[in-house]
């Protein structure tokens, strides 16, 4: 069963349907639900409907008006998914907006990521900025802060938040905070996990087993059942051992 390959390199429109490889390098539009082996958008592409493919790559400007499902999804340009995105692997180094929920096995984001609902992944790593309205849940959450990031809640097994890469030495980081300069910050309501390390984080509640509150944090309340360490340049209003 050989499916048709399509390539739009000028300006063009195709109907939805089942294709082999779809390449848009000019300005292209797919009108309808699209199923393909591979979707590559390097110009400006718009899919008016849902999209399903093994591999989706967006390096220009891509827009999907429905939900998207792909084994691997790579965005290095500006990409918007107006429904949910379900993928094995999401790599975004550009600007990625998802109006619905994101569910993946692996998320690696070094650009900006905006998600309207929850983010669920086995592994979530970010060295960019993100804004997640709902819950960010992953077995492993690794965040290297750049600029301001936000999540409604964060929950998982191992959660590690480090302030900007420019300050690898603890001493200079602490001094940096005292001078009112920071590499980045994270705002969230609740952080829950078994093993938590936070820097430059503002949260109402942190609940966990082993919790380390690093420099630059301002936490309302920490509840822990194992161990708790608080850095001298962190502020914790209340701590409770369960």
């Amino acid at each position: 069963m050989a499916q048709q390959n399509v390539s739009i390199s000028g300006s063009g429109k195709i109907g939805g349907g089942d294709y082999g490889n779809v390449r848009i390098s000019g300005a292209g539009k797919v009108e309808g639900d699209l199923t393909a082996e591979e979707i590559r958008i390097s110009g400006s592409g718009k899919v008016m409907g849902t999209a399903k493919a093994r591999e989706i790559t967006v390096s220009g400007a891509g827009r999907f008006t429905g939900s998207v499902e792909a084994k691997s999804f790579q965005a290095s340009g500006a990409c918007a998914v107006e429904g949910d995105l379900k993928t094995g692997e999401l790599r975004c180094s550009g600007s990625q907006r998802i109006s619905g929920a994101l569910s993946a096995h692996y998320v690696r984001c070094s650009g900006t990521l905006k998600v309207g609902k929850n983010v669920e992944s086995d592994v979530f790593t970010s060295s960019g900025r993100f804004n997640i309205e709902g819950l960010l849940s992953a077995d492993r959450v690794e965040i290297n802060l750049v600029g301001e990031s936000r999540a409604g809640e964060i929950g998982g097994e191992k959660i590690e938040v480090r302030a900007g890469s420019g300050f690898n030495l603890q001493i200079s980081l602490a001094r940096g905070f005292r001078m009112g300069f920071s590499g980045g910050s994270l705002h969230t309501n609740v952080v829950e996990g078994d093993d938590i390390y936070l820097e430059a984080t503002r949260a109402d509640v942190v609940r966990g087993v082993d919790v380390r509150i690093g420099p630059g944090c301002r936490i309302g309340r920490v509840e822990y059942s194992g161990t708790l360490e608080i850095h001298e340049d962190a502020e914790v209003k209340e701590q409770v051992k369960a």
Binding site: S103, S137, A138, D139, E157, E192, D194, R207, G208
Partner: peptide, 20 residues
């Protein structure tokens, strides 16, 4: 939630994983 964990001996990681 924390009583659930205490009661059953499961971890936050497991609870979130099962939810996912």
């Amino acid at each position: 939630k924390k009583e659930v964990l205490e009661h059953t001996g499961i971890s936050y990681g497991q609870l979130y994983r099962w939810k996912r």
